[in-house]
């Protein structure tokens, strides 16, 4: 599948923003005072909004994007949009009450946490629902999205929050654990994706054309001499060329570097700068991971080409 930069930016950035929002809703301690609280909330909301705005750049008609809120009964993309707007609105109310009236409304926070998690789940389901793309068509896809979202949120919250210990663990250690869990999920996802092919549905050029009953089927002539929307969008090959290098880059920047920085933060005590560095490195790694998520995914229509 064609890896669109706007969609990669959207899924990574909104995911992390919602991860931080999830933790703020659960009551992760922040520095007191109006300005620190406002900045924390703006960071969580800002990352989420930046991602959502980026996602509209991928649309042919962004001016009609509001129409996407209407079909939540059948469409995961619509559900994602509705959930994101509801979550952000409630989080806005929560943030204002917290910053200006020093009221951290516990119950509203929990609701926001649930909604933030559901939003990330809905984002992942846009891809996981597609039977046409076997790599994505698995509950492991939302698992990875949720795990990365949480890991990003934990590192950010550890960097900017006031807590030194959470769940009776030093926050850099908690960050490291969240990272390792997320990448373990991704390794399982990669291992499944490497094996699945079209074996789940048994599709091949023979079933696609129905001519497999007669003999071995192969394409003799393409419908047109040039490229078309389908080949550019769904039979995208070039992005896979450097897959192994990109996986290595994703693992080094997304896992190894942030882990080292977490342990350095713990041993030196310079938690804020080192964890922020770790967060930036993780984001870079996630961009590489998300590029591959699209570029390596094979679509059923490629069986006709």
């Amino acid at each position: 599948m064609h890896p669109a930069v706007s969609v990669i930016f959207f899924t990574v950035t909104s995911g992390v923003g919602l991860g931080l929002m999830f933790l703020l809703g659960l009551g992760w301690p922040m520095h007191e005072g109006m300005i620190p609280v406002l900045l924390s909330c703006i960071l969580a909301g800002g990352l989420t909004v930046a991602g959502l705005i980026s996602s509209t750049f991928h649309l042919g008609h962004p001016e009609r994007a509001w129409r996407a809120f209407s079909q939540w009964r059948s469409s995961w993309l619509s559900r994602e949009g509705v959930l994101a707007v509801v979550t952000l609105t409630l989080f806005g109310i929560y943030s204002l009450a917290w910053a200006f009236f020093d009221m951290r409304i516990e119950l509203l926070g929990y609701v926001i946490s649930i909604l933030a998690a559901l939003t990330v789940y809905a984002t992942a389901m846009i891809y996981a629902q597609l039977k046409t793309v076997p790599n994505w068509n698995s509950q492991l896809t939302p698992l990875c999205y949720l795990a990365f979202s949480l890991a990003g949120g934990v590192i950010l919250a550890s960097a900017i929050g006031s807590a030194e210990m959470m769940l009776s663990l030093p926050t850099p250690i908690l960050s490291a654990i969240a990272l390792v869990i997320a990448w373990l999920a991704k390794l399982i996802w990669w291992s499944r994706a490497g094996k699945i092919g079209f074996s789940a549905t048994g599709s091949d050029t023979g079933t696609a054309t129905g001519l497999g009953k007669i003999g071995k089927v192969k394409l003799f002539e393409k419908p047109h001499s040039g490229e078309n929307y389908l080949t550019k969008e769904m039979v995208h090959q070039i992005g896979r060329k450097h897959a192994n290098k990109l996986r290595l880059i994703a693992l080094v920047l997304g896992l190894a570097m942030p882990l080292v920085l977490c342990f350095l933060a713990l041993s030196t005590g310079a938690i804020v700068p080192l964890l922020i560095l770790g967060f930036i490195s993780m984001m870079a790694g996630l961009f590489a991971e998300r590029w591959l998520f699209f570029a390596e995914a094979k679509h059923a229509v490629s069986l006709f080409y």
Binding site: H61, A68, V301
Partner: peptide
């Protein structure tokens, strides 16, 4: 809105 998701959902192109 030209999101292209329907084209992704169709196995036949």
């Amino acid at each position: 809105i030209g999101c292209g998701l329907c084209a992704w959902a169709c196995p036949y192109g």
